[in-house]
Simulated assay, not measured.
Amino acid sequence: MARPVISYRYSSLPDHCIRLLRLIPHWDKTAPLQCSLFTSPILISGRASHSYEALSYVWGSPERTHYVCIDNCELPVTASLHGALSRLRDSLIEKIVWVDAIYIDQEDLGERENQVQCIAEIDAKASRVLVWLGEEKDDSSHDADGADEPVLALLERPWFTRIWRLPPPNTSLWSAVPPD
Rank of each mutant, 00 (worst) to 15 (best):
R3Y: 13
R3I: 06
P4D: 12
S7E: 13
S7H: 08
Y10C: 14
Y10N: 07
S12D: 11
D15W: 01
D15G: 09
H16T: 09
H16F: 11
C17P: 04
I18Q: 06
L20R: 01
L21T: 07
L23S: 07
H26L: 04
D28H: 11
P32H: 02
Q34N: 12
C35F: 06
F38Q: 10
S40G: 05
S40F: 05
I42L: 15
I42C: 10
S45R: 11
S45V: 06
A48R: 09
S49T: 09
S49E: 10
H50C: 15
Y52T: 08
L55D: 03
S56V: 03
Y57V: 00
G60T: 11
S61K: 01
S61I: 04
S61E: 14
E63R: 07
T65K: 09
T65P: 01
H66T: 04
H66N: 14
H66G: 07
Y67N: 06
C69D: 11
I70V: 13
D71Q: 03
D71G: 12
E74D: 14
E74R: 04
V77K: 04
H82V: 09
A84N: 05
S86R: 14
L88M: 03
R89W: 03
I93L: 14
E94Y: 13
V97I: 15
D100N: 06
I102H: 02
Y103D: 14
E107W: 05
E107C: 07
E107D: 14
D108W: 08
D108L: 02
D108G: 02
L109D: 15
G110E: 13
R112F: 01
R112D: 10
Q115D: 00
I119R: 11
A120Y: 12
E121W: 02
A126C: 08
A126V: 07
L130M: 02
L133M: 11
G134V: 02
E136N: 05
D138Y: 01
D139G: 13
D139K: 04
A144S: 05
D145P: 00
G146Y: 05
P150N: 03
W159V: 03
F160H: 05
F160Q: 05
I163P: 06
R165D: 01
P168Y: 01
N170L: 01
T171H: 00
S172M: 09
A176H: 12
V177P: 03
V177Y: 08
P179C: 10
D180N: 15
